Amino acid sequence: MSQETNPPASGARVPWQRVHPPVRAAVEEFLGGRVVEAETQPGGFSPAAAVRLRTDNGGRAFVKAVGPEPNADAVRLYQAELKIAAALPESVPAPRLLTGFELEGWVTLVFEDVEGEHPELPWRRDQLDRVLTAVKGMSAALTPAPIDASPIGKVFGSSFNGWRMLLDEETDGLDPWALRHLGELAELESGWAEAAAGDTLVHADLRADNILLNGERVYVVDWPWACLGAPWVDQVMMLPSIGMQGGPPPHELCTDPGAEVTSVVAAVTGYFVRHGRLPDPPGLPTVRAFQRAQGVVALDWLKRRTGWA
């Protein structure tokens, strides 16, 4: 399998030594000791530090920190995550936020250091079944949402207008089926926000690199996109990455024939297909390849769901 077909979910992480010195000092002050070990965690795309720290007094923490360069959008994303993480109740299967702060343009989140490993890739069926069961249970436990959050339609907004945007953009290299049905896909996608609406707190960005397995426990990390949606949204949005990373294809894991699901699948597919055609964002050299690979899987799923020739 080629690198483009199955690209890694990792980007250009910032080592702890390159984090803004006042930020490092503030973290050490909070932890009450000098950092003697900093292990960068590679999963994820943001051009930020993501490190497991150990201090000289035995303290441990997982720290995420991002500055305004090279991508200011990452700062806004971390600000959103700080707000969500601070509000998540202990019932949510996520690492506990110990503290968070903004300092001289940097946003920093300090979490408890949870022991665990990402699911093995290609996906093992036993681990996949554990994760899907945990996601279903999490969705049930977060209905109704225990915290205030924005509706999914507001959070993702025009990002899920991919097919509609492609109506007015260059389409060289677009899949022939998608090009043939572009107008229909734009129409199908247009109702996604209403289809995905609900009162469940959804993570909205589930992938293997946002999941940790610890014994029988499943932890879900990285919540900046958390929003209100239908209880099935997390599973549906996760399935293209599962299929791309060696798991079963989406149509085998989601047999719901509902028009609402198809509308959301259309929007997710349009997002991956269109964004995969865009230039790399500043500081995120790997995300487009990951989106393109998910788009291939999602498009096959969409073809099956629509039944269009």
Rank of each mutant, 00 (worst) to 15 (best):
R217D: 13
Y219A: 00
P231S: 05
G44V: 03
V110F: 09
A293C: 02
T200L: 09
V110A: 01
D56F: 02
H275A: 12
V63M: 08
L132M: 07
F111V: 01
L188T: 03
L121C: 03
G198R: 06
L201N: 01
G258C: 05
L278I: 08
A193S: 07
S190M: 03
V19I: 11
G247F: 10
G295V: 06
L167S: 08
N57M: 10
E184H: 05
A50L: 09
L53P: 04
C227M: 10
G59L: 01
P68S: 08
V218P: 03
W106Q: 00
G307V: 10
V233A: 15
N214K: 12
Y219R: 00
G58F: 02
E28I: 08
A193Q: 01
A140K: 15
G105A: 05
L299V: 03
L201H: 00
H20M: 01
V92A: 13
V35H: 03
R288W: 04
R217I: 12
A134M: 08
L299G: 00
L167A: 05
A230G: 11
S159Q: 13
S241I: 05
W106P: 00
V23D: 11
L121S: 03
G191P: 09
G215M: 06
A9Y: 14
D129G: 08
P144W: 15
M244L: 08
H181T: 09
F272T: 07
V268K: 11
E112M: 05
L121F: 11
Q245V: 12
P146R: 03
E120Y: 13
E216S: 10
R277S: 07
L109R: 03
F45L: 06
I84R: 04
E104G: 02
K64D: 01
A193D: 03
S139A: 15
P42N: 08
V27G: 04
F272P: 01
L97F: 12
C254I: 15
L278A: 13
G198I: 13
Q245H: 12
A85M: 11
V19F: 06
D73N: 09
M165R: 14
A266P: 04
L284R: 14
W223N: 00
E37I: 10
G105D: 02
F156L: 15
R52V: 07
C227H: 04
G32M: 04
V273Q: 05
A26G: 07
W123I: 07
V51M: 02
W177H: 04
H251F: 12
N71E: 03
A145R: 07
F272N: 05
G11S: 02
E39D: 15
A50C: 11
L182N: 08
G229P: 02
H20L: 05
R24N: 00
P89T: 04
R124F: 11
P144T: 08
G247S: 09
R96A: 09
N210Y: 12
